[in-house]
Design a protein around this nucleic acid. Structure first.
Lengths: 338, 338
DNA sequence: TTTAGCACTCCTCACTTGACAGTGCTAGCG
DNA sequence: CGCTAGCACTGTCAAGTGAGGAGTGCTAAA
């Protein structure tokens, strides 16, 4: 469809615009392409007709359209291989430190990514849906208050304070805990609820549990918290340094959006195994209509998955961000392997 | 020093400016005070001379100076008692819900406060320095990996994953844990480290622990995490709706500041038992030179203390925020009593 | 197919101008 | 003596104007 020169023009316009944030004129390109401005203007007119370029006003230079960015990301990004150098070693270094726990590791990685790219980063931790229960414990702390603890095979802990009904028998409680540990040992989180409801109907347990609904509720509550995957947002303020956010109204919209937990809507876990790039209005969130989101899933233990993402202006340095993000995701997947 | 009328002029200027964010002229005040503009101009000139008022340019209305706000907060705020109505019942409602754990309760309270005031809120959780150890446990999860758990009398839990040296004896480990539970039961967090180091030198333990430095380190690490008090920031974006932040450069500065953990520098825990108001440059942080911070400590269990604070523009609704903040702090202190 | 040339469009920026809000000062009033 | 009316003055703001510049589209020629 496009001639090679047209592709080159598109590529250069994207890259120039990414750098300068200003509409690109034919004269600028003619310096890099060894064709006269007039020739390039013709190609630009064609590219505009196809929907890859836009003008800000009738006599301005060209700006890539969302479709133009897509074409660029999917087909032009590696053309004429002058790939920018990226210092991947810094990432390697980060993962050397094994005193970090899982949350800390993700958080640090995302901080680093935000610093390296100068964009906002976003991560969704794995949901722990497939983690398995290793230990359940009820620790008395004060009068009839107890802390319920659940530990998984990944060392993840959830706790909840509960108040026991008056006159609960300590020995009986101990027995209940033993039974629960028996029943639930090595059961994946996703199946706990089902399992409890099944076992509870068996005679010898039914009696014990009759007046302990509260404990069961506390259990289920603790377990559901496992399945809520944590999320990490970092470098929010990086966005403010982008010229597209020199307008306060936009800044408000964006910061408001970041503050709400709706951020999760941006990255949907579920589908797509590889890289996803959402440009501009594809994000379906008004505050993000001038932003792009690039996301890559990573594999955690036991088949659980997480996602890491970079959020920047549509005018993002795709050429730099995409490989970086891929590298980081691969690294995290590897980390979880052992 | 000031005549009654001058005080009234100052009070009205502060309150008018708080509402409108625009310099207040003599004509506006003359309507509320039953004196001619000229008279009021004379008082304003005096107040300016004393340092309570400022002009933005030679022929503008007056704006309160930092000193002016101070005078207002300390002496004028309750003058002529038309106190604004505040719906304290909403706060009461919040604390009814006792299914929330401590962190959640603080977080929700601060969210609410941010919504009610339309300012940013900040809280420092109590440090748990005086909490007491109720249970220590080591749960094996995978091969020679274990999770170390510590539970306090307040139901607070810290955990840490550790890898045991090859060939560690399970029975021996069990014995170590029993000893630790014996030694540390009901010991306040602040004295744990000392206690461990003391006991470890007694003969029968020394032998056991000889090659288990790693466990000790993990312990100490978990304990130090208790003493780091958590902080809560909410409604950051509220600040953006203040007219003083219609300038992007200022927004950047402020958001950057909020993003760093330096926010803690704003509220220092330690001193002062009552209300503290820091206005403008008193905060000693350039990004906050147009902001005021109002903070109140609250009492947690066992003599630990936390702080809650509201951050807004110097042009803040002190009259509304101060009683609200006091009420909330009192409520939180009460909550911790039972 | 490419390019030079030219008329045209629209943006940006500096400058002017008039309306306006507010001040300080002075003189007069009760 | 304290208060007030009046007036000249000052700085801000918004609207209007005009020059300069960057970039385009089109046409005709190489």
């Amino acid at each position: 469809m496009l001639t090679e020169r047209q592709e080159m023009v598109l590529k250069l316009i994207v890259e120039e615009f990414v750098k300068s944030a200003e509409p690109v004129g034919s004269r600028t390109l003619s310096k890099k392409l060894d064709f006269s401005p007039a020739t390039i203007r013709n190609d630009m007119a064609d590219l505009e007709e196809y929907g890859y370029l836009e003008k800000t006003h009738s006599s301005s230079g060209r700006v890539p359209s969302e479709q133009g960015y897509h074409y660029y990301v999917e087909r032009l990004i590696h053309m004429n291989g002058d790939t920018p150098e990226i210092d991947l070693a810094i990432i390697d270094d980060l993962f050397q430190d094994d005193t970090l726990n899982r949350d800390e590791a993700i958080e640090q990685a995302m901080n680093l990514l935000s610093q390296m790219t100068n964009y906002t980063t976003l991560a969704l931790g794995p949901s722990a849906r497939n983690s398995r229960v290793k230990k359940i414990e009820l620790v008395p702390i004060y009068q009839n208050q107890c802390v319920l603890l659940v530990v998984t095979n990944l060392g993840h802990v959830e706790s909840k304070t509960i108040t026991l009904p008056e006159g609960t028998d300590a020995d009986e409680l101990k027995r209940i805990m033993e039974i629960f540990n028996d029943i639930l040992y090595d059961v994946p989180i996703s199946r706990v609820s089902e399992k409890i409801h099944y076992e509870i109907n068996r005679e010898h347990i039914k009696d014990l549990m009759a007046y302990n609904d509260q404990i069961i509720d506390a259990f289920l509550d603790a377990f559901t918290r496992f399945t809520q995957s944590k999320f990490y947002l970092s470098g929010q303020s990086k966005m403010l340094y982008q010229p597209e956010f020199s307008d306060v109204e936009r800044v408000r919209e964006l910061m408001n959006f970041f503050e709400k937990n709706d951020v999760l809507k941006l990255i949907d876990h579920s589908d797509s195994t590889g890289l996803t790039v959402r440009i501009g209005r594809e994000n379906e969130i008004t505050a993000m209509k001038n932003c792009s989101v690039i996301m890559v899933p990573y594999d955690a233990e036991d088949g659980d998955k997480g996602t890491i993402a970079v959020v920047g202006p549509t005018r993002m340095e795709y050429r730099k961000v995409i490989p970086l993000l891929k590298y980081l995701a691969a690294h995290m997947s590897k980390l979880y392997k052992n």
